[in-house]
């Protein structure tokens, strides 16, 4: 690749105590890309997300962001530099209002005109979030919560959004909406790194993808290549009749 990738993992290994989770993993995410990470349960997908956010540290190997090594960088500094999470199961602050949740998303950003612009953008993207802004986040439906979670990530003015299972637990209608929104955000110049069980949907909007098995990358390629791969078809695409909601 000619230009510097936005985010790069080089031979990253991580451990939880003695448990070796990520094994010599390499990823690259370019500017403006949607990259999907596929894999079964407990294969290291969430650990990948936590390693990007700096909640889990790479024991060996390097994580590079915008050309700079960020292995030792605190989570707060990563967020400030433009990496924002959409967490698995949304993880909103249930006893805070929707507006306060959005404020928490903007925690590393200065308050002022910029904040007002960003809030207006989120409300434009999700009119429903605007309607619900004074409600406690815990009282919202799963789909509405996912909108707030995505809005909360956008409030950090991200260059890269890391999404952990954005479609999990949502009705088909909301899954559609979430994936449409991801594409909209991406067209506005935000790169997306997405862990997703719903491989069909994920590969339909992603540019490229990686397949993780037992903590190691076993396959990577463009979304089209992955969709036509026999192993992927059998392991991930064939089973997608599984209940979604």
């Amino acid at each position: 690749m000619a230009s510097t990738p936005l985010l790069e993992f080089k031979n990253v290994n991580t451990y939880y105590g003695d448990l070796h989770v990520l094994k010599d993993v390499n990823y690259t995410i370019g500017e403006g890309e949607i990259v999907s990470l596929l894999g079964g349960n407990a294969c290291g997908k969430s650990t990948t997300m936590k390693t990007i956010m700096g909640v889990v540290r790479a024991a060996t190997g390097t994580v590079t962001y915008q050309g700079q090594e960020i292995n030792g960088l605190a989570t707060s500094e990563r967020v400030r530099r433009g990496i924002a999470p959409v967490l698995e199961a949304r993880r909103l602050f249930a006893r805070m209002s929707v507006f306060e949740n959005l404020e928490m998303g903007a925690y590393t950003q200065p308050r002022g005109a910029q904040f007002d612009d960003d809030i207006a953008r989120v409300y434009e993207l999700f009119p429903r979030v605007k309607e619900r802004r004074n409600q406690q986040a815990g009282t919202l439906s799963g789909g509405e919560q996912q909108m707030v979670a995505i809005g909360r990530a956008l409030m950090a003015r991200p260059k890269l959004i890391c999404m952990d299972e954005p479609s999990m637990g949502l009705s088909p209608l909301f899954v559609e909406l979430v994936f449409d929104t991801i594409q909209t955000i991406n067209r506005q110049g935000v790169s997306i790194f997405m862990v997703e069980q719903n491989a069909n949907m994920a590969l339909s909007i992603a540019h490229r993808g990686y397949v993780l098995q037992s903590g190691a990358v076993v396959l990577s390629g463009t979304a089209a290549e992955l969709r036509s791969n026999e192993m992927i078809k059998q392991a991930y695409l064939g089973e997608m009749e599984a209940p979604v909601a």
């Binding site: 909103l92 602050f93 925690y107």
Partner: peptide, 15 residues
């Protein structure tokens, strides 16, 4: 308040 409700999520907001 956010940290009291979910420390890990608060941390990932940059707290």
């Amino acid at each position: 308040r956010a940290t009291a409700q979910d420390p890990e999520a608060a941390r990932m907001m940059g707290v």
